[in-house]
Design a protein around this nucleic acid. Sequence first.
DNA 1: CATCACGAAACTTAAATAGTTACGAGAATA
DNA 2: TATTCTCGTAACTATTTAAGTTTCGTGATG
Lengths: 139, 139
Amino acid sequence: MKRNSRLSLALHTLGHMAVNPRKMRTSAEIAEHAGTNPVVVRRVLGKLRQAGLLISEKGHAGGWQLAREPQEITLADIYLALDESLIATGRTEEPSRCSVEHALHQKVASVMADIEKSLIERLASTTIAEVGGAESGHL
Amino acid sequence: MKRNSRLSLALHTLGHMAVNPRKMRTSAEIAEHAGTNPVVVRRVLGKLRQAGLLISEKGHAGGWQLAREPQEITLADIYLALDESLIATGRTEEPSRCSVEHALHQKVASVMADIEKSLIERLASTTIAEVGGAESGHL
DNA sequence: CATCACGAAACTTAAATAGTTACGAGAATA
DNA sequence: TATTCTCGTAACTATTTAAGTTTCGTGATG
Ligand code: FES
Ligand code: FES
């Protein structure tokens, strides 16, 4: 697994959960499907839990589950829960003494903000129920 | 200097060039202003030269210069010349056997493609002449 | 022909991310 | 109550990517 895999992992996992929302999944199971490590899974899903998308329980019958109906969870919810903006705008800049740099940064930051907003709108139009759709896979 | 600084460096440099298009700048001068290394500057500007935005010349009076008028160079030109998509869509995926993953990837890739197109349109609406604008800075 | 600048290759350093190990806490089961 | 299962978290290692550096060759100028 490579870079920026957190979003992929989250989307994939919740896509499967949408197919079978009642099933309790352990991080070990999920990790095996995703070809990664249980701890990595817990790290990523932990953020989704913080955002109120997932519920986790400890102990014997423990594991992970959707916190609400699949129709009520959009791709934007997942994207925002991870707060790792795909739109990388250079970096956080200190106040530059150079006016050209400053003007540029203003312009680019403004464009990027619009673009991210538009990205979120697009993602918000699809739920995990739709994308997990007609599926009877092995997870 | 950190990550994804190539675009920043390119924009900043061309912004200054737009203010004073006749001046020949050496990579050493540019590097000093940008707080980086001449070789890094040549690497980045080299891509802009390949894209036909800049001209470089060797020798005594050598250095870098705009290949055309500042009014004819947009931020999109620069972005595209570097071809380092800010929109990181997970990664190049091998054909996945998992239909959920496949559906997800299709959806996300489609959204990302739209978003990038829209980003380029936005960037194309500003030229470096505009952003370098009313400037008499020290470069 | 000496100098200056780019071009490019090779290498080193630094940062970010994923992966791993390890252990504690809570919940169900026996 | 003891055992077992699973999450939560911290600390560490490994991998990957980008930036920075060194070095040498080439062409142009004076
Ligand atoms: S991974 Fe999507 S199915 Fe097992
Ligand atoms: S850096 Fe923009 S002015 Fe020197």
